[in-house]
Design a protein around this nucleic acid. Structure first.
Length: 567
RNA sequence: GCGCUCGUAGCUCAGCUGGAUAGAGUGUUGGCCUCCGAAGCCAAAUGUCGGGUGUUCGAAUCACCUCGAGCGCACCA
């Protein structure tokens, strides 16, 4: 409907241009759903935007535009209001068309072809496999999965991907930590992974000799030494002493943790098309090749024994090291290779969802994409602020290494998947978020997700009771009350909401909409009776209510939240 | 010090590609179950939109300054 109105407006503007009143039609003419019923169904501010060009008062220009509008049966009347808004009042019949549309399309209602099948690679979570996911990762997981659903709903083809950092020093620290627990050492390195899950993995180790790998290593920090050096020497000893058994433990540790992460995400309703291994970039030599390609194109220089990538040529603050003086590739080097690999897979757009603490990393990644001859515009990086956890009014410190954190699994079991999914996306992703554990765990009724699910359950219950009553054709002209009109108006917004929510990567827009829709329904429920004697009236109201139910189901489905029939 | 993000009702947050009286949840106060699910509804009260200056017909929204909070500035990943 919005598009039809837009075309009508353009026609009117063109008529004014031919009369010499206006010079040109603006690119995008804004037509919004009015917030207030007294302001009609749609409003346009085009007259105010163009008043300068026309050199007359916005209100007068609006009047002139209105006079040029051709009649359309769907439009009941058009008004000029306020400082120069053009308000469109649609006929109730035209608004009601959406009901038939919803009931006919069912699960498909609201979907569009806006994305025209363009392919998007969406990478999210990608937490290091050094421990279970915690509640901070949960936010990225819920956000990423919902953005993915949204984009799919408006016609994009989206592949979800998890980048597994299974190479590098952190993994060695993990393996060594497991071995030390297996040996049941009494002194544990400051920099080792201390969580309980390390003990669980250690229990699975068998047929490996127990050596004292702490012999001859330098002092740990608590003894006045350097904790980084201490753990590096432990790792070196561990590798040397264990030989091939080291790989065994290494693999056990990562497999165990990664499979835990996969189960966790899958139970949270999140499916990935790809799990991309960092190690595979090393094995395939792509990391190596990428550095060579950069060298060839002249973006690399040597300084103090290391290879530096001149990212400052592409807008970064500092140049970055890609190969250290000890010959090791930095994480950045494999990350460049990874992004190159993503681009080579031929996606129309590559989206990364990162924790906001990585924002300083954006410039150098985009720089590397430019340097390798790709368009950095095709890479979009969305940042998610970490959630601050509060327990008993106090902020909870979180660190994977110290093992003091609340896992995503714990949270899911406490508050339920539905509440967790909804709660996470209810706030704008870049908004700092206070996650009050006590509130989320103990008073789950306050969570708005139940409000929406309750509306669905109520409708289900009503429809169930209507099952044995006669079914006749509905007469939509009987939907005359204010609340019915505003409920229909709300349903008419769904498609636009879905699109706005998706193109802006803002799931909270959909979440808020569903709560509003549920609110309208609850008002209606308390205000009117559905199971009335009159067959036509009953079936008419039930069809409205059924349409509401369908939209709630469709919307919750995008958010990854279930719509139970009873609760 | 430099950079990114944020600052809106007691609390948690929407609204931000400039638009009509700044909204919701929660909390507070008072009503509504002989009636389709009261996890609900209705009503009342609540704001220097952190502060300041500017841009203009119009600023919570844009620009600049300033104060406050979080995060990032490695030959770590």
């Amino acid at each position: 409907m919005k598009q039809e109105l837009q075309e009508l407006l353009i026609q009117a503007l063109q008529a004014l241009i031919s009369e010499g009143i206006l010079e040109s039609v603006p690119d995008n003419i804004r037509i919004d759903h009015s917030k207030d019923k007294s302001q009609g169904d749609f409003a346009s501010n085009v007259a105010m935007v163009l008043s300068k060009q026309a050199r007359c008062a916005p209100k007068d220009l609006a009047q002139k535009i209105v006079e040029k509008l051709t009649d359309a049966t769907e439009i009941e009347r058009v008004e000029v209001a306020g400082p120069g808004f053009i308000n469109f009042f649609m006929s109730q019949g035209s608004n009601n068309q959406v009901l038939g549309d919803i009931l006919a399309k069912g699960d498909q209602f609201g979907l569009s072809e806006f994305g025209k099948g363009q392919r998007i690679l969406l990478e999210f979570v990608s937490a290091n496999p050094t421990g279970p996911l915690h509640v901070g990762h949960g936010r990225g997981a819920a956000y990423g999965a919902t953005v993915s659903n949204l984009l799919r709903a408006i016609g994009f083809e989206v592949d979800n991907e998890y980048y597994v950092n299974d190479a590098g020093r952190q993994m060695d620290i993990l393996a060594t930590s497991v071995y030390l627990r297996y040996c049941e050492v009494t002194v544990f390195p400051d920099n080792g992974y201390k969580g309980d899950y390390i003990f669980d993995i250690a229990k699975q180790v068998s047929n490996v000799e127990r050596y004292d790998i702490a012999q001859d290593v330098c002092k740990d920090e608590k003894d006045g030494g350097d904790k980084e050096k201490h753990i590096d020497e432990l790792i070196a000893n561990c590798k040397r002493v264990l030989g091939s058994d080291y790989q065994k433990i290494f693999k056990l540790a990562i497999d165990s943790i990664l499979s835990g992460i996969k189960i966790d995400l899958s139970e949270f309703g999140i499916e990935y098309q790809q799990w991309f291994s960092e190690q595979s970039l090393v094995d395939s030599g792509l990391s190596e090749k990428t550095v060579k390609a950069l060298q060839k194109s002249g973006h690399i220089y040597e300084k103090e024994g290391a290879l530096w990538f001149k990212t400052t040529d592409f807008g970064d603050d500092l140049d970055r090291v890609v190969v250290r003086d000890n010959g090791m590739h930095t994480y950045f080097a494999s990350d460049i290779a990874y992004h190159l690999e993503k681009f080579n897979r031929g996606y129309d757009k590559v989206i990364n969802i990162w924790g906001s603490d990585h924002h300083g990393y954006i410039a150098r990644v985009k720089a590397s994409i430019s340097a390798l001859g790709h368009n950095p515009e095709k890479l979009e990086i969305l940042l998610v602020q970490f959630a601050n956890l509060y327990r008993s009014g106090e902020k909870v410190a979180m660190s994977t290494r110290s093992g003091s954190f609340v896992t995503l699994e714990e949270l899911r079991h406490e508050v339920g998947n539905d509440a967790a999914r909804f709660f996470y996306v209810l706030r704008k992703s870049e908004q700092h978020m206070d996650f009050d554990l006590d509130l989320a765990k103990s008073k789950t009724n306050e969570n708005p997700v139940f409000y929406i699910q309750y509306a669905h359950a109520r409708i289900f219950s009503v429809l169930k009771q209507a099952k044995n009553m006669p079914i006749v054709e509905a007469d939509l002209s009987l939907l005359t009350s204010n609340i019915e009109a505003s409920l229909v108006k709300e349903l008419n917004r769904y498609k636009d909401i879905l699109q706005t929510s998706a193109v802006n990567y803002e799931p909270h827009i959909l979440a808020y909409y569903l709560r509003d829709l549920a609110g309208e329904f609850h008002s209606y429920y308390n205000n009117s009776e559905f199971l009335v004697e009159d067959d036509v009236l009953r079936c008419t109201r039930l069809s409205l209510v059924q349409a509401v139910k369908q939209v709630i189901v469709n919307g919750l489905n995008v958010l990854g939240v279930s719509a139970p029939d009873s609760m």
